[in-house]
Computed example of a mutant assay.
Amino acid sequence: MYQKILVAVDGSQCAARGLDEAIKLAAAFDAELEIVHIVDPGYEEEGVRARLVAEGKKLLADALASAEARNVRGRVVMVDDIDAPGNIAGQLRRIVERSDAQLVVTGTHGRSGLKSLLMGSVAEEIVRHSAVPVVLVPQRR
């Protein structure tokens, strides 16, 4: 049914739960997993940016190793573009639009009301704008 599943990782527990679910789904459907990490465009200082890129590479390598350990084939994509328009949610939305993934999996903190309005929600942005199904994986409470 699904040949390619996209999941974003950011090092949070919430994203780790999303990755775990995406790996399970990819294994069940014998699908390829596309693992995406976006370096926060809000940090332009060279030393900070270099550290964020290094952390992102390690995060992606670990995520891919987790998938491969469960016999799921995958590939990684890191976005490091301080000149890219929009926030992380907007950048991820554009990646989803360009991808040929048939399913997107993302973790969600489950914020609602004023907290969601003030902090924004990457998951909400993806759900609202995705042309493909989105699986939301809630953070454990």
Rank of each mutant, 00 (worst) to 15 (best):
H37I: 03
A26R: 03
S66A: 14
K58N: 08
S130L: 04
H37R: 02
H109K: 10
L59F: 15
V137W: 12
Y2W: 10
R140G: 15
R128F: 08
I23L: 08
L25M: 15
D80S: 05
V79K: 08
R140D: 14
P85G: 15
V76D: 09
V105C: 05
D81V: 07
S66R: 06
R128E: 04
G74I: 00
D83R: 11
Q91E: 08
E125W: 09
P85D: 15
G113W: 14
V105Y: 11
R51L: 09
A28P: 06
L33N: 08
L33K: 11
S116E: 13
G11V: 07
A69E: 09
I95A: 02
L33I: 07
G107I: 01
L52F: 13
L103P: 02
E21G: 05
L92W: 07
K58I: 11
A67N: 05
Q3C: 01
G107D: 03
V9I: 10
L52M: 08
A16M: 05
E97I: 10
L118D: 10
F29W: 14
E32F: 14
V72P: 02
C14F: 12
K58G: 05
G56I: 14
G56P: 06
E124H: 12
F29P: 10
I126K: 02
S112F: 10
L103K: 06
L59W: 15
L6C: 09
V72S: 06
G18E: 02
V53A: 08
V76G: 09
S66G: 12
V105I: 02
L64I: 12
A101G: 10
M119T: 10
V135W: 02
L118Q: 13
R98W: 03
D20Y: 13
M78W: 13
V36R: 00
A123F: 06
L52T: 01
S121P: 03
G18R: 00
R98Y: 04
